[in-house]
Nucleic acid binder design. Sequence first.
DNA 1: CTTAAAAGATGACTTTTGTCAGTTCTCAAA
DNA 2: TTTGAGAACTGACAAAAGTCATCTTTTAAG
Lengths: 233, 233
Amino acid sequence: MAAHEESRCENCIIRQLNSLKALKKEELKAISDSKETRTIKKGEPLFKEGEKLNGVFCVRNGVSKLSKISDNGKDQIVKIASKGEVMGQRSVIAEEATNLSAVALNDMEVCFIPKTNITARIEDNPAFTQAILKYMAQELKLADDVIVNMAQKTVNQRLAEVLLYLDKTFGQDDEGYLALILSRSDIADVVGTATELCIRTLAKFKKEQLLETKGKRIKLLDKKGLTQIKEGF
Amino acid sequence: MAAHEESRCENCIIRQLNSLKALKKEELKAISDSKETRTIKKGEPLFKEGEKLNGVFCVRNGVSKLSKISDNGKDQIVKIASKGEVMGQRSVIAEEATNLSAVALNDMEVCFIPKTNITARIEDNPAFTQAILKYMAQELKLADDVIVNMAQKTVNQRLAEVLLYLDKTFGQDDEGYLALILSRSDIADVVGTATELCIRTLAKFKKEQLLETKGKRIKLLDKKGLTQIKEGF
DNA sequence: CTTAAAAGATGACTTTTGTCAGTTCTCAAA
DNA sequence: TTTGAGAACTGACAAAAGTCATCTTTTAAG
């Protein structure tokens, strides 16, 4: 049965996309046998800030936001994870409680892989460890970019950047609207600003013919213009 | 001779402080034989954004800032590296050009270790690889905190945090002033704000008896008060 | 010791961002 | 179809941050 085939890690498409591809057949089989598939409904949490994770989550379907509450009580979305991405590996590797909360942005299907299956492979499969290491080095580099953006760019610039990112990463639906629909409040939490300012800035972009909205859906009309704004013109 | 002894990696104190401690005697010997000691004067660069690094830098003495220029042309200091820290490993591991510039904040002594000596150890010493991996997972977590701070906290809060960080990390001189002396402009670049606002905020803190200044030197008087500001009161 | 250059400091002003209070829109459950 | 809760939106105002011009102090080179 196709469904049965797909439910085994050896055949999961996710394997193509990340460090898991450095694993051998037997290793994948062990993971497959111990893993647990879960469905999470839109709005439900996968885990919360401060929890000790005893495994990682591999996204099969759907999208999740990873966020953190600042001392000021505001939520900041640090990452949006979708198909093929692994959540919680940092926490498992560093052997510390997670610093992020994960909440489903739409209905999700994830595989939960117990941490022993990860740590054991890190112990005995150098290729796997190296793949993760390389991945993390790149993530760290990206994190620097985000820090600089947050510190130095205006809300205008950051919003333009987020819109272009959503377009590039999740694409458009058949009518040309951004395929990943976020609430204004979530967009504001990615940009790092107040919901009202986010809405106002979207309205301004609309007036400037850079985009079009229909309810909460957004269609980018002038990506070149948005890119210029992002870069500070 | 003591100097000769210390110049060998096997005996270098730095080894105690980071992933290098996972290396075996022979491996350290190989590094020791290939490494090159350099002195860099205050204000001079170690490397520049976009350069391809063919090795890592290990700080023996002095302090360096790691910064990145944003699209807007402003410099953002992302990290301050001092004794025992290794610079450039991300770039070497990810096999990409570095995204940061490193400039000495005072006279420095660093060891340059050619990248083959790092990559070879990553290939054949799992304990070393795992140590770096764990270190990076922690760095990544810290990076999230910085992102949230930059996005959600005010300049007041961030400046208070930076001052406390400098105090905690570099300590004080015999008169009680922060031992690491940064220009107002560098402080502003760490905080992520304009130099003028940084100076003004320092003046405000001074008026509130939170600190004292003498030229560019700063003495923290009320760390509790600064901690409260940092947390948003 | 002098002195030019750099860094620090301050005032006046503009722009950006945040906040609060309210109105309108949307969509799904009754 | 109604309706009500939550999200989107708007206006008015306040606070935070950035900018420009100018002046003063510090520092280091000669």
